[in-house]
Design a protein around this nucleic acid. Structure first.
Lengths: 206, 206, 206, 206
DNA sequence: CCTTAAACGAGACGGTACGTCATGTCTTGTC
DNA sequence: GACAAGACATGACGTACCGTCTCGTTTAAGG
C-alpha cells in the first residue's frame, strides 16, 4: 500500500508525462483523504496538482478512472511476513505491521476510500478484493509453520485465522473510529491465538 | 435499525405532512441502498417518493440533512439481549441477532451508508457512534451474568468482549464482502468465547 | 426587421420568463453586431444579458437555436409600400425605406448576420429567403399600378424590377461596404426606372 | 481569383516547403467552402492536407493568418477586359466573365468567405476592397471607349457603371442565392446599358 | 554518397468555450 | 397553507479545439 518504485508505465513516457501523472495521482489521493470520494472534484485535483483540468481528462477518462488508477497505483500488498519461530510473536508482528501500514495519511486515505462509496465502482471493489486475497495468501505460512511446530491444532485454516486477526483492527478503523496502535495489534493477536489454540479455526468450519 | 412505526413527528403534522415525510425518507433509504451516498440525488429521491423536489427542500435544508434524518429515523438500536443462562448461547444468539438485522435490504443500506462517505458528515458519524455505544451498553449484562455464573473470568470487560464478537461479522460485511449467516455468527461467538475464557478481555487491557 | 410588439410567446410566461427571453435575445443581437456569428459566445451573451449560461441553455438548445431565434424575432418584413401615383416617386420612396431600415445598429447586425456564416444554418437561410420573398411580393403593386398608369411597359415583371432596385443598395452594404443614404436610394431608383422604361424587365426575361 | 502558378514563395523554399504550403492552402479553401469560416478548424485543414497540426502552426501564426493567406493567394483579379468595339457587347462579355469566375467550387468558396464572418478580419476586408477596386479600375476603359465612340453620354462614371453592372449578379450570389448564368449576366448588362444611356451614371452623381 | 540542418510527425499541455446535470433558492399558480 | 411546477444562479462535469511547447524522425539539400 505504498509507492511502487518499479516502472509500471501504464502511460506514455514522452514530455512531462510521468511527472504530471505522479502529481495528479498524488493530488487525487490527498483529495480522497481530505474530502472523500463523494466530494472529490477533478478541478480541485487538477488545481492541487498544478495542472489544468483538461490535462487530467487527457489521461483519465473520468473521475472514476482517476480514482481507480490512483488506488491501483498505491495499493501494493507489500506486507512483510514475520517468521520468529513462535506463532504468538508472528501474529503480534503481523498485526503490528498491519497497524503501521495505516499510519501514513496517504494509506489512511486509501483504506478509507477502499471502504467508501468508491467501492461501488467494480474496479475499486476488485482492487480491494485482490488486496485482501493477496494478504491472506501471503500470511498462510505463519499458520502452516505453527501447525508444523505443534503450536496450533492441525487443520487450522490459515485464512480464517488471519481474518480473525485483522477483524478487530478493521473494526476500530472502520466502525468505532478508534485509534490503533501496537496495543490494539497485540490484543487482536491474543484473541486470535486463544481461539486458534481452542481449535476454533479448524478446517471443517467455514 | 428497523422501521420505526411510532409517530416521531419532528415536523409539522398538518396537511399531507407525515405521509410526505415517510415517503421521502423511505425513498432516501432506497436510493442510498441502490446508488450510495455519493450518487444520491435529491431529484431522484423526490421522483421516487412521488413528490416534487421543492417539497423535499421545504422539509430538509439540504441533501445532507435529508440523509442524516433518514438514517436517524431508522437507526434504532432495538437489539434484544438474550438471557439463556449460558454465555455460549447468549453470545451465539446475540451474534445471530446482529446478523439477522442485516438481512433486510433497508438495513443493509443503512449499514453501508453509515460506513460510506456519508460518515464524513458529523451528524452521521454521531449516529453511528451512538448506535454502537448503545449496543455495547445494552449487551453488558450478558458478560456480567457470565462472570457471576463463573463462566468467564472476573474483570472480563463487557465492551471489549462484544467488540470482539462483532468484529468478524463486520469484517465480512465491510471488508471481504462475504455473505453472513448463522454460521458466521456462531463462528464469531466461538472466537470470542475462547478468547474470553483465556482471559484476553480482562479489564487492565484497553 | 424591427421589434414585433405582438405577443409571440414561444416560451412559457411564468416567472421572469419573458424578461429573460427579451434580455437574452437583445444581447444576442448586440453580440452578433459586435463580434459576428463566428465569434459569438453563449457565455458572453449570458453575461451581457445579466443571466447565467445555463439559463440560456434552458430555453435554447444551443448557440445555433439562439441565433436563429434572435433573428426570427427581429426579421419582420414590415416594410411600408408607397403609393404616390408616380412610379419614380414610388421607387425612390421604397429604396429610401430600405435604406432607412439599415440605420439602427440592430438592423445592421441582423442584415450582416443573415449574410454571414450564420446563413449556413438552414433555419437562417430560410428566414432570409422568406424575408426577401415577402418583400418582393409586397412591392409588386408598385409595378402593377405603374403599368396600369402606362408609366411602364406592360409585362414588366415586378420581382425582377424590385431586385434591380435593391441590388445596388445591397452591393454597397455587403460588397463595397460603403455607407448608404437617400442619395444611394435615389440612384438605385433611377437605374431601375431607366431600365424598366427600356423594357428590360418585361416578362419573357428571367 | 484562380490559382496563381507563379512562385509567390513568401515562405522558405527548402525542403518540402512549397508542397506543404500548397496542400494546406488548398485544404483551407476546401474547408472554407464546405464548412465556412466559422466552423473551420485547423485540425481538419491539417488532416485534409495530410499534414500535422503543428506543421500548419509552424507556417501560419493562427487560424486567421491561414485563412487570410489562402484568400490572398487565390484572389487574383486576372479579369480580362473585353474590347469588342461595342459597349453592349463589352458589358455583356464582362458580366459573363464575372459569372464564369464563380463557376469553380474554389472560387465560390472564396467569394463566400470574402463576404462571411471572415470579412471581419481587417486583412480579409482589405483583400476584398483591393479586389473590387482593381476590378473597377481595370474595367474603366470599357466606359472610356464607349464615351469616345459616342455610345454613352460624356461624363459617364466608369466605377458607378461597373458597380451597377455587377450589383444584380452579387444580389443573386449573396442575397437571393439564385444560380447565375450567361442570361443573368446579359440581364445585368441590359439594365446597366439602359441606365447608362439615360445618363444615370453621369459624374456629378456619387 | 553521405551527412546535417530544416522541416515534419506526434502528442502533451494550458486554456476557452461548449453543452449537460445537479444543487439549493425563489416565485407563481393550484388544490 | 401546503404542494406542484419550474425558472434561476451556481458550479462541476466531460468534450472539442486553440495555439504553444517539447521531443524524435524524416528528408532533401550541400559537402
Amino acid at each position: 500500500m505504498t509507492f511502487d518504485p518499479l516502472p509500471p508505465a501504464p502511460a506514455n513516457v514522452v514530455g512531462r508525462g510521468p511527472k504530471v501523472r505522479a502529481a495528479v495521482l498524488a493530488a487525487t489521493l490527498a483529495e480522497l483523504g481530505e474530502t472523500g470520494f463523494a466530494a472529490l472534484t477533478v478541478e480541485n485535483v487538477a488545481r492541487r496538482a498544478g495542472v489544468h483540468k483538461t490535462t487530467v481528462y487527457r489521461r483519465w477518462k473520468d473521475r472514476r478512472n482517476l480514482v481507480t488508477d490512483a488506488l491501483t497505483d498505491h495499493v501494493v500488498s507489500n506486507i512483510s511476513i514475520p517468521d520468529t519461530g513462535c506463532v504468538a510473536s508472528d501474529l503480534s508482528q503481523l498485526a503490528r505491521h498491519v497497524v503501521r501500514l495505516q499510519n501514513s495519511p496517504i494509506d489512511q486515505a486509501v483504506t478509507t476510500a477502499l471502504h467508501s462509496d468508491a467501492a461501488r465502482l467494480p474496479e475499486v471493489a476488485e482492487i480491494r478484493r485482490q488486496f485482501f486475497a493477496d494478504r491472506f495468501r501471503r500470511a498462510e505460512p505463519i499458520i502452516g509453520r505453527a501447525v508444523e511446530r505443534g503450536e496450533l491444532p492441525s487443520d487450522t485454516d490459515p485464512t480464517l485465522t488471519i481474518k480473525a486477526l485483522i477483524a478487530p483492527i478493521y473494526l476500530r478503523i472502520l466502525v468505532t473510529a478508534e485509534p490503533i496502535d501496537d496495543a490494539s495489534a497485540d490484543h487482536a493477536a491474543e484473541i486470535t491465538l486463544a481461539a486458534a489454540r481452542a481449535g476454533v479455526f479448524r478446517r471443517p468450519r467455514c
